[in-house]
Simulated assay, not measured.
Amino acid sequence: MFSAKTSGSDEWKAILSAISTLVEEATFEATAEGISFRGMDPSHVALIDISWPNSAFEKYECDGDIKFGVRIDEFSKLIKRSDKTEAIEISLSDNMLLISIGKNKQYKMRLIESSATDTPLPKIPYDTRISLATGLFDKILGDVQVVSDYLTIKTNATKSEFSGKGDSGEVLISLQKQQDEPV
């Protein structure tokens, strides 16, 4: 049994947008603790590691460790059919992903056999941790993507800077540290 329900679509849209920049197919892992995804781009330069705890969902049920693979562009097309305030519920049934949007839309999407292997986290020491709402992070990625295919993140004790440079120009987005939050 697996079912996860969000009160709106923003989280799904942000997560799928971030994943789609690296891979075309994704294997999510659902456990009693929540949903996670870890993947690397084909050139093994960029890594995305998402952990979505069960407490972030309006309703969450998972009675075992379940892996399910999807084509990100197909999943994203369905999620984009939702309004910002429509609840989204996903569940699994007979090798299909069931997606309920609001009170009257239901989609069934075929799952894929994943060829992805477990992606270990690299052992790189970091001295900074940045916590952002998914909507804000998605907006930053979109703002940088207008001029660049690459994102550079710099931090210090008071702020975090997100920048990109491309043929058409440059962008710099600065966020000040909020009181009692990591930068």
Rank of each mutant, 00 (worst) to 15 (best):
N95S: 14
D167W: 02
E61N: 05
A32G: 01
L92R: 06
W12P: 09
G169C: 13
D138L: 07
D10I: 13
T21A: 09
K165G: 08
G169F: 14
F28N: 03
E24S: 05
P182E: 02
Q145L: 05
N54W: 05
L132M: 15
K84N: 05
G142S: 01
S160R: 06
K108H: 04
G69F: 14
I35E: 13
S51E: 13
Q179E: 07
I50V: 10
L111T: 11
L136S: 08
W12E: 08
A32S: 10
L97R: 09
P42M: 11
S55I: 02
D127L: 02
S17N: 11
T152V: 12
P53Y: 03
K105A: 14
Q179G: 00
W12D: 08
E113V: 11
F28W: 11
P125K: 04
S51H: 12
N104K: 14
R71K: 13
S17M: 03
E170S: 15
K139M: 06
D180G: 00
A18S: 12
I48E: 07
L111S: 06
F37V: 04
Q145D: 09
D127V: 03
C62L: 03
E58K: 04
G69Y: 13
G8A: 02
I173F: 08
S93M: 07
V23R: 05
V171N: 12
L121F: 00
D41M: 04
F137R: 04
I72D: 01
N54F: 10
I124S: 01
T119C: 01
E170I: 14
A116W: 00
I99A: 07
P125G: 00
H44Y: 13
E58W: 00
D41S: 06
I35W: 14
P182W: 04
A157G: 12
K77C: 03
M1W: 01
Q176T: 15
L136I: 13
A18H: 06
T134D: 10
L151H: 06
K165N: 12
V144D: 01
D73K: 12
G8E: 08
A87K: 11
A133T: 14
F2A: 01
K159R: 14
R38G: 03
L98Q: 08
D10M: 07
K154R: 07
R71T: 11
E86R: 02
S114H: 08
K154E: 15
T27D: 05
K159G: 14
R81N: 07
D41A: 02
V70L: 13
N54V: 09
K139Y: 08
P182H: 04
V147P: 11
S3H: 03
A116T: 02
Y150D: 14
F68I: 09
F37E: 02
A56F: 02
E33Y: 09
W12F: 15
A46Y: 02
K177G: 04
A157Q: 15
F37Q: 03
I88K: 08
V45S: 13
M1K: 06
K105M: 13
I112M: 13
S51F: 10
Y60N: 01
K165Y: 05
R81I: 03
S9Y: 08
K77F: 03
S36N: 12
M1G: 05
L136W: 03
